[in-house]
């Protein structure tokens, strides 16, 4: 419209409403091309994502999740597996237990009590275990996968592997600490 050289600027039309007049200026070129540009973009975008084979949101999500899964497996392969004996030394390592305590206070104390004495969740300081045998590997598994039907969330997606180890070390180390207001034993006696 406005590329017509015959377009005259600031022509006052014979419209008048309560004293308001109107000019008949052409549409600004940059505005018009912005409008056309967005329409062209919209058209191409629509074609691409409807018939042009553009990746769907779900396709995108699955690809990313798969990438994460592959990366996880790669790291697991590269990381030497600690054997049970190595793991069982951790509860005696004060630095690891201190790190575990920190994670425990932030995430677990609400349900298990600040000293592991139990609350919403079971007492962690006695010899009785509901899931597993109270050894490092079984405590780690419970933390990682949770026990959903009992309300223990799975913490695997939240904690790093070394945090889970430290946390388990802290919990195993709690045994026999005999805190005040301890919750009654639940589960089976696995001995000390």
């Amino acid at each position: 419209m406005s590329d017509n050289p015959n377009d005259k600027y600031d022509v006052v039309l014979d419209h008048e409403y309560d004293g308001i007049q109107e000019l008949n200026n052409p549409l600004p070129m940059w505005w018009l091309w912005t409008f056309f540009g967005t329409i062209i973009f919209a058209f191409i975008y629509w074609i691409h994502y409807s018939v042009g084979g553009g990746m769907s949101l779900d396709g995108h999500l699955q690809a990313q999740l798969q990438q994460i899964e592959e990366q996880k497996q790669l790291e697991a392969k590269n990381q030497p597996q600690k054997n049970e004996a190595d793991l069982e030394t951790l509860p005696k390592n004060a630095a690891v237990v201190a790190q575990g305590n920190k994670v425990f206070q932030m995430n677990c104390a609400n349900c298990h009590g600040d000293k592991g004495q139990g609350g919403i969740g079971p007492n962690l300081t006695d010899n009785y275990w509901i899931h597993g045998d109270g050894k490092m590997t079984s405590v780690m598994a419970t933390i990682k996968d949770g026990v959903l039907e009992k309300g223990m969330p799975s913490w695997g997606p939240i904690f790093k592997p070394e945090e889970i180890e430290a946390l388990a070390a802290f919990v195993v180390n709690l045994r026999g600490s005999n805190p005040a207001n301890a919750k009654a034993p639940q589960g089976e006696d696995k001995g000390s």
Partner: peptide, 11 residues
């Protein structure tokens, strides 16, 4: 002052 562009109003 008059409205800048009647045509723009329409479009």
């Amino acid at each position: 002052r008059p409205i800048y562009s009647y045509r723009l109003s329409i479009v």
